[in-house]
Design a binder for these strands. Structure first.
Lengths: 334, 334
DNA sequence: TTGTATGCGTTATCAA
DNA sequence: TTGATAACGCATACAA
């Protein structure tokens, strides 16, 4: 890989002149410029971003940290971020935190070692303990998809979205509710609030189930469904979970939406491609990512590393209604 | 972010001594070492990988280039690569080529600018034209999931896998076959060969359909299915495509596996979580990725940049049989 | 318009 | 065992 120094030797000019020609900001003798360009092209010169990043100038690297790349929602996020970043001349370092605080801290250490210009992270947890380590970062960063008091974040209110799901299910005349997700999840809290607002006695009519293990989840859901005979409204914390629940219900012979109305979260391709289509909360991934990348890069280029007021940018979620919450009592409708 | 130079000043030793302490390879005075370590910890010293990469030493960066991060298969691939790389002390730069040769070339340029130590790529195309640009790379690299004559590759034989699918469908007594994928795809060619081997007159009994547009695909498949009344064997080029086909079939009221047996490719979570489960060709993603990363890093660390003989590492695919190719004629069985 | 000199944060090579 | 010194590839300030 040829360097400016070598190009300089080959063309008989100084290295800074080569730099000036190749960067094209200062004025140079056209003839010299041509000679240098020709030589650079001939030898397929590629600037060394590493060296460029060394002089306190920028690396044009952004880090993206997500808890699970294999989750289609985060895959969409990474794709969208990469797309916008690439257009702006930035490349991305991808980190998978695996929902582990320990790994998250390691990632944070690593991305600082690479002197990335900025970070976009979807933290595993949004409580105090789970976000403390971000406070020590000296580079600009943004939190995506979650709202955190202490940090700049770009998100859809999971709480409001949960309430929206509640309203939708209530409108369908449902009286029994199940949230499949972690206790304390904002979606779940919003769901509960929405139900209460709708006059539901959540103590008796709302159940929360969370099991990592598929078999245990299956038996708990089966037990839940056989504990009453009404139609149930089930809200799963994401589309993958919703797919799993749908599968479980179908296996034990519970028709969806007949006996159970099902709602997912993230509106990934899964929810639309499956039969019956799953009603799901849509987050405007593309727009959010475009915004967060452009906003972050703006800050990077302004070099305003000073702490400013914490800024929250909320995007509106919308519910994409599909067959899984149809009013009709027959499953698998067209 | 504190530097070695500053640590040196603070502890009253020279900067190279700090380097020696922190890297721990050379022997240093234990007392000095302790003082330096304490100081480094106190100031949260983070080595500058950028500077380290400058002196001809390594960046500990690997680039991964895939055509579509949002495809669950590639998301799995990236996750697996990231996992193995992280254990070995490497971070990854992710690039999305979007199935565009032009973008692929841009990625190749970029990753060289970042002086990554190696590249793992899933090229969009595996013909001469689609892989030529890899030839100019001066860093170690590997091709994943495809086999290319001219390059080191780690893959599952799509051709053999296609033949395996053919054998499976023939065993199910099927006589009409549809491949939903691009003309010339190795999977399709293998499928055709497998059918011929099984005595099928592929001219009359095999059809190939490829449409980017969902609606057009839908109407072509509907037309195809109504052109005869036997049971059809449909092989989709990947699981996302298979899901799409399943959806189309269900919408037009064609029972799977009753009237059509369906086979996918990649065995992503989709094929197992959906109802009916989709029979799918499994690629051992984890093992392949572990192998390719470790193998690549081995070459990087040996610094054997000399061209060696082209090496192909083939992994065995296996067919995961599910309800979508059940012999029974009733759809959605348990 | 161009060249010289310097510095970025490391590692490596010397000599002490 | 340690410290000077140079080098990596580039950008920038300054001098010419």
């Amino acid at each position: 890989m040829i360097t400016m120094k070598e190009l300089a030797a080959l063309t008989g000019v100084s290295q800074p002149t080569v730099s000036r020609v190749l960067n094209g900001n200062t004025s140079v003798n056209p003839e010299v410029a041509k000679k240098v360009w020709d030589c650079a092209r001939e030898h397929n010169y590629q600037p060394n971003m590493i060296a460029r990043g060394l002089n306190g100038s920028q690396t044009c690297l952004l880090a993206v940290m997500v808890p699970n790349i294999a989750n289609p929602f985060f895959a969409d996020v990474i794709k969208a971020i990469e797309g916008t970043a690439e257009k702006a001349g930035y490349s991305i370092l991808t980190f998978n935190s695996d929902y582990s605080l320990q790994k998250e801290e390691k990632c944070l250490r690593l991305l600082q070692q690479y002197r990335v210009d900025g970070l976009i992270a979807a933290p595993s947890r949004d409580d105090e303990e789970g976000t403390r380590h971000f406070g020590e970062l000296t580079i600009p960063w943004r939190i995506l998809t979650r709202c955190s008091d202490r940090m700049d974040s770009v998100y859809v209110s999971h709480e409001k979205a949960g309430a929206m799901v509640a309203a939708h299910l209530l409108q369908r005349g449902i009286q029994r509710f199940l949230f499949v997700g972690k206790e304390g999840d904002d979606k779940g809290l919003g769901f509960e609030r929405g139900l209460r607002t709708g006059g539901v006695d959540t103590e008796r009519q709302l159940t929360v189930i969370w099991e990592e293990d598929r078999e245990r989840l299956s038996s708990r859901i089966a037990a839940y469904m056989s504990s009453f005979s009404d139609r149930a409204g089930i809200f799963a914390s994401n589309d993958m979970e919703a797919l799993l629940v749908l599968n479980i219900l179908q296996r034990v012979g519970i028709p969806v939406p007949g006996r159970a109305a099902l709602v997912g979260f993230d509106n990934t391709f899964i929810s639309s491609q499956i039969q019956p289509g799953i009603t799901s909360v849509n987050q405007p991934v593309e727009e959010m990512c475009r915004f967060v990348v452009e906003d972050l890069i703006r800050q990077i280029q302004k070099k305003e590393k000073k702490p400013h007021a914490v800024r929250h940018t909320e995007f509106a979620a919308n519910l994409v209604v599909r067959a899984s919450t149809d009013t009709g009592s027959c499953s698998g409708g067209k």
